[in-house]
Structure formats: C-alpha cells, structure tokens
Amino acid sequence: MYYKNYLCKKLGKVENLKINISKKKPLKKNQVRLKILSIGLSYVDILMIKGTYQHKNELPFIPGTEACGIIIEEKCNNAKLLNKKAIIISKKGCFSEEIIIELSKIILISNKMPSEEAASFFSSSLTSYIALKETAKIKKNDFILITGASGSIGQNSIMLASHFKLNIICIASNKKKASLLRKMGVKKVIFAEDNIKKKIMTYTKNKGVDIILDINGFLKEKNILSCLAWNGKYLIVGFTNNNISSIKTNYILIKSIQVFGIRAGEYLRRTTMSNKKKIIKDIFKLYKKKIFKVKPYKVQPFNKLIEELTIIRDRKSMGKIVINTKYLSSDSK
C-alpha cells in the first residue's frame, strides 16, 4: 500500500530532498505501475532540483528522469504487460520505489537485460546518437572535439565516433579522467589548462575540427570555436555550474559555423513515428554490439541517492552512477 520516494518541496540544493512515504494511487486509463529496480543518476536531475533546467516541474515533485522497472499493474487492457521489464524515461518520478506512467512513455526490453545497465544507458545513448548521427551527420575521418568526455554522454559519444571511424580529441580536467579516456582508445587528450587551439591545429594539420560536442559548456572557459574548421558544427548538449556563454554572430558568419542545440528527448518526441522507431532500434543494435557500454559503473543503495548526486554536482564522478532499490535482488538483475 505504501512506498518510498525522494520528494523535492523546495528548489535548490540536492541536500534539500527528503525521503517520503507515499500511498499507492489507482491507475488511470493507459497507465502502468512499475516497481523500480534501478535508477540512473545524471546532471539533468540536479538541474531539475535547482529549477534551472528548461523544463520545470511544479512543486512538490519526485525528481528522477531515468530508471528500469517491472510492470506490476496495468490499465491498458493488456495483461501480457505484467512482469515485463521496461526502461522509464520521464521528466520526473524516478527517484522512487514505484512509479505510475503512461504506457507510451516506457520502452519494453528483454527481462534478461541487466537492470543497472537498462536504468543508465538509454538517455545518454540517445543524446549521443541524436547529436552525432541525426544532427552532425558524422562521417568517416571527421575530426571531433568532445568536452565533458568522461561522463556517460561523453563516453557513449566516444564509442559511437570510434565505431564510425572518426578522429577523436577530448578535453580532460585531470589526469584520472585523461587516463580513462586513453584506455577507451582516445589518441589525443588535451588538458583544460593547455593551449587547446595550438594543440588541435597541430594535430589536425591546421585544418581544425569538423565538429565540437560541448557537453559541459566549456565554451564559457575557453574559446573552442576558434578550433573549428570552415563550416564546422558546434553542438551544445548542456552546461555545468551555470556556465552559459554568448556567441558573437559575426564569428559564426566569418567561419560559416553551424550551431545546434541538442535536446534528444524532445527530438525523439517531435520526429516521425517511423524515424523514432528506427532511432530506438539503432540504439539497441549498438548496445548489443557493446558500442554503448559506459564504464565505470558505481552502484549504491537507495539511501545513498543524495550523497551520489552531490558527487555528480561537484564533478567528481566518472562514468555512470546507479541507485538500486530494495526490489533489485540477485535473481532480478
């Protein structure tokens, strides 16, 4: 009758979240109830809690945008849905032991897929796919510069770019992150304090990069647009610490730069149904080929959720952090 969740009553610090006990509500038509097994944490969750994300939830709300669970109740006139495993992608509600959601907003998967992977791979994989395949139209031998590369979106983007044989350059903030990137096969890693333009121009033989994938808003810190080749593409994925910058339009004109904002979830919602199905199918194909495999995973129990969010906020994380609920037993992973 009751289940635990984390409730946001006031926008601001993640430390303000409180564990709450909720009573189960009845389902509406075309909804399903899932017991959540694993929850994937991301920087988007922190922005939602701060109230600085482009989508704002009404208070109070249960944060959490990505999880994996098992359907335990349905009101879709389809009993075959029961006990099916699904990926949950939502604007709220995943920091919980249970969730009610419309059937159209979940992705049914094989019950054999590990819950911790299912809860943490799709959103970042989707962002990488939309950015590189759908928007940048990457091709073999392109030069790509990736910021925020040690996180889940960065790692997925590296693996996707590597799969399609691009020349990858990454910016790292410390030696630990640089070591991780080199182990992934990145041949050119540049530190944030380096003369980035000089090193990139040397590496590309004065051509510059064809694509910049700016995951963490690094443009605010360094003018990486100067590293772009003629008609290069600058892709904005997100920002950390509110490092939002302005771009001079004359600079865009002079180098014929193309600027794109990447909102992968919104892209998937607005595209045609046939393209949506194709994108999801391609992502799972790449997952099966082990293209979308983020490492390292850090797995923690439900009561450590706030602590792990602070690690992401303070930019001390690498890879993906996953929270397991009480429902994830050894035989349900």
Results as ranks from 00 to 15, higher is better:
Tyr2Ala: 13
Leu7Tyr: 08
Glu15Met: 04
Leu17Pro: 10
Ser22Lys: 13
Ser22Asp: 03
Leu27Lys: 01
Lys29Phe: 14
Ser38Gly: 04
Leu41Ala: 07
Tyr43Gly: 12
Lys50Ala: 13
Gly51His: 02
Tyr53Pro: 06
Glu58Asn: 15
Leu59Gln: 03
Phe61Thr: 09
Phe61Cys: 06
Pro63Tyr: 01
Gly64Arg: 00
Thr65Met: 12
Ala67Asp: 05
Cys68Tyr: 04
Cys68Asp: 11
Cys76Asp: 11
Ala79Leu: 15
Lys84Met: 06
Lys85Asp: 07
Ile106Gly: 04
Ile109Ser: 09
Ser110Cys: 06
Phe122Asn: 08
Phe122Trp: 04
Phe122Cys: 01
Ile130Lys: 09
Ile130Leu: 03
Ala131Arg: 08
Leu132Arg: 00
Ile138Thr: 05
Ile138Ala: 02
Ile138Met: 08
Ala149Thr: 05
Ala149Asp: 00
Asn156Val: 08
Ser157Gln: 04
Leu160Phe: 09
Lys165Met: 13
Lys165Pro: 05
Asn167Glu: 12
Ser173Val: 03
Lys175Val: 09
Ala178Gly: 04
Arg182Asn: 11
Ile190Lys: 07
Ala192His: 13
Glu193Trp: 09
Asn195Gln: 11
Lys205Ile: 03
Lys207Cys: 02
Gly208Lys: 04
Asp210Cys: 05
Ile212Asn: 07
Glu221Lys: 15
Glu221Asn: 13
Ile224Gln: 01
Leu225Pro: 02
Ser226Arg: 14
Ser226Cys: 01
Ala229Val: 01
Leu235Pro: 06
Thr240His: 10
Ile247Met: 09
Arg263Phe: 11
Glu266Phe: 13
Tyr267Leu: 01
Leu268His: 00
Met273Pro: 07
Met273Phe: 12
Ile283Met: 08
Lys285Gln: 14
Leu286Asp: 10
Asn303Ser: 14
Leu305Phe: 08
Ile311Asn: 10
Asp314Val: 02
Lys320Glu: 01
Ile321Asp: 04
Tyr327Gln: 01
